[in-house]
Simulated scan of single mutants.
Amino acid sequence: MTRTTRETATGWFSALTSGDADRALSYLADDIEWVNYTPVPGYNDRMPWIGTCHGPSAVLDSLKVFLGMVEVGTEELVELIIEGDRAMGVIREKSVVKETGQTFEIEFIQSLTVRDGKIVHWKSYTDPSQILRAIDGRAA
């Protein structure tokens, strides 16, 4: 039996916010397109985990880069909207850039497209200025 969009999205966000990477990765389709912002040279390219990748192993590599730079404090799902094969979740995150010790707090949107119980397209939206400030070592 294939999971519904709601079951897939709630499972994904539950795994994500609890830090269960293996379970989170199990929700990704083999052909996932993962779009984590668009790099803009001279602006957000100091976030080396951003960009587009394809397939769960490339997603995992991207997440490893992120976790190598950032210690995630808390992530909380604050809103979830589901319609058809699409889901959008608003996540509140509070984390620390390891190198500078600076914290950042953001809200970001994850947009999911689900097919056959797996996430086939994932895209993230946020204002990265708080992350960039923390990477640069500037206090809030």
Results as ranks from 00 to 15, higher is better:
Leu67His: 12
Leu112Asn: 13
His54Phe: 12
Ala24Val: 01
Arg3Gln: 04
Glu93Asp: 14
Ile131Asn: 08
Gly68Val: 06
Gly55Lys: 05
Asn44Glu: 08
Ile32Trp: 02
Arg3Glu: 02
Ala87Thr: 04
Ser124Ile: 14
Ile106Ala: 10
Ile106Ser: 12
Tyr43Arg: 05
Thr8Asp: 02
Gly89Asn: 11
Val114His: 01
Gly68Ser: 08
Leu112Gln: 14
Asp31Thr: 08
Arg138Pro: 03
Trp34Asp: 02
Gly89Ala: 10
Gly42Glu: 04
Arg115Asn: 05
Ser57Val: 09
Tyr37Gln: 14
Trp34Glu: 00
Gln102Leu: 09
Leu25Pro: 01
Thr8Trp: 03
Trp49Ala: 11
Lys94Asp: 14
Ile135Leu: 12
Glu107His: 15
Arg138Asp: 06
Tyr125Gly: 06
Ser95Ala: 15
Thr52Ser: 13
Arg23Met: 02
Gly117Phe: 01
Gly137Met: 11
Ser14Glu: 11
Lys118Gly: 00
Ala87Pro: 11
Val96Met: 13
Ile109Gln: 06
Arg133Asn: 03
Glu76Ser: 14
Ser57Glu: 15
Thr5Glu: 05
Asn36Ile: 14
Val120Asp: 00
Ala9Arg: 05
Asn44Met: 07
Pro128Gln: 10
Asp127Gly: 04
Trp49Tyr: 15
Lys98Val: 07
Leu60Trp: 03
Asp116Met: 01
Phe66Asp: 10
Ile81Tyr: 08
Thr126Val: 12
Arg3Pro: 00
Gly84Phe: 05
Thr52Gly: 07
Thr8Arg: 02
Lys118His: 00
Thr103Ile: 07
Tyr37Val: 12
Ile81Leu: 13
Arg6Ala: 09
Glu93Ser: 15
Pro41Asp: 08
Phe13Ala: 05
Ile109Val: 05
Lys64Asn: 11
Leu80Asn: 13
Phe66Met: 15
Trp12Phe: 15
Thr2Ala: 00
Glu7Thr: 07
Val65Asp: 07
Gln110Lys: 15
Ile91Lys: 13
Gly84Gln: 12
Cys53Asp: 10
Pro41Arg: 13
Arg46Ser: 05
Leu28Thr: 01
Ala140Pro: 15
Leu132Trp: 06
Val35His: 12
Ser18Met: 04
Ala29Thr: 01
Phe108Leu: 14
Asp20Cys: 00
Leu60Val: 04
Ser26Gln: 03
Ile135Cys: 04
His121Met: 12
Ala134Asp: 08
Ile32Asn: 04
Met69Ser: 14
Trp34Asn: 00
Arg23Lys: 15
Asp20Gln: 02
Thr103Gly: 13
Ala134Trp: 04
Leu63Asp: 08
Leu112Lys: 08
Trp49Ile: 07
Glu7Cys: 06
Ala140Tyr: 09
Ile50Met: 10
Thr5Asp: 04
Gly137Arg: 11
His121Lys: 14
Gln110Leu: 15
Ile119Ala: 00
Ala134Glu: 09
Gly55Trp: 01
Leu80Ala: 08
Lys64Cys: 03
Glu75Asp: 15
Arg86Val: 05
Ala24Trp: 02
